[in-house]
Amino acid sequence: CEIDASTSMWIYVFLGNLLRGIGETPIQPLGISYLDDFACEDNAAFYIGCVQTVAIIGPIFGFLLGSLCAKLYVDIGFMNLDHITITPKDPQWVGAWWLGYLIAGVISLLAAVPFWCLPKSLPRPCGREDTNSSSEEGKFITDYQTPCGKKVKIIEMAKDFLPSLKNLFGNPVYCLYLCASSVQLNSLFGMVTYKPKYIEQQYGQSTSKANFVIVYEDII
C-alpha cells in the first residue's frame, strides 16, 4: 500500500515566515524615520549606525545558530539518539532546522518586552521644537488640515500621492541609492539561498560545516 507522505506543516512555516517578514519590513522605512524624528541631532546618526550594525551582525549569529542546529538530529527530544546510525556528513542526515526558529522566536519576544514600556507618543527633542525643519510626518499632517483643525479625508490626501511619487523618483541621488540597494540585496539573498548548498555539493561538506564557512566569509 502507498503511504501519503504529504504534510501540512509547511503551512505553519509559511505563516511564520510571513509574520517575520511583516515584522522586519517596517524597520528600515519606519524605524529610521522614527529615530530621526525623536532623537537629538547629535545622537541620531549614532542610533542609526547601531541599527545598521545589528542588521549586519545578526546574520552572522543566525548562521552560527544554524550550524549548531544542523549538528543535531531533526527528531531530537522525541526519540533515542543512540539508535541513529548516520552522521551529519551523511546525505540522509536531517538537522534540527526547527530548533533555530524556536530559539530566534524566544529571543525576539524577549527583545520586544522593552518596547511595550514605550509611551504612546514621545516628546520631541528640545533642539528641534523651535526649528523650522520639522519631520516629514509633521509636514504631511500640517498641510492636510482644514481651517477648523479637522483632518481631511484619505481620498483628498491621496490626490498628491502620484505627484509626490514622481518627484521622489526624479531625485537622482535617491534612484542611485535604490539601484545600489537592490543590487546589494540581490547578491546577498543569492549567497544566503544557494551558497551553503553549493559548498555541500561541490566540496562534500556537511550542512553544519557549510553554514560555518558562510560565517567565516561574512567576517572576512
Rank of each mutant, 00 (worst) to 15 (best):
W116D: 00
G95F: 06
T131C: 05
S108T: 15
P123L: 04
Q92Y: 02
T85E: 14
F115W: 09
P123K: 06
I103G: 03
S133G: 03
E129T: 05
W98L: 01
W116V: 10
E129F: 04
W98M: 03
A112N: 04
S134N: 07
E136S: 12
Q145H: 09
A111T: 14
Q92S: 10
K89C: 07
L122G: 01
G149V: 11
L118V: 06
Y144L: 14
V113H: 00
A111L: 15
T87I: 09
G138Q: 14
A104Q: 12
S133P: 00
I86A: 06
L109I: 15
K120Q: 13
T142Y: 02
T142S: 12
Q92G: 02
I103P: 03
W98E: 11
S108V: 11
S134Y: 02
I86N: 10
R128A: 10
P91D: 06
V94Y: 01
Q92R: 11
P119E: 10
D90E: 02
L102C: 07
P123Q: 03
A104V: 14
P147E: 14
E137R: 06
P114R: 06
S134I: 13
V113P: 04
K150D: 15
S133T: 05
E137D: 08
K150T: 13
S133Q: 09
P147H: 03
D130I: 01
R124T: 14
P119I: 08
C126L: 07
Q92A: 12
S134A: 11
D143M: 05
W93P: 04
G127M: 04
E129K: 08
W93S: 02
E129Q: 10
R128W: 00
C148G: 15
P147L: 08
K151T: 13
C126N: 03
C148F: 11
D130T: 08
P119V: 10
L110C: 14
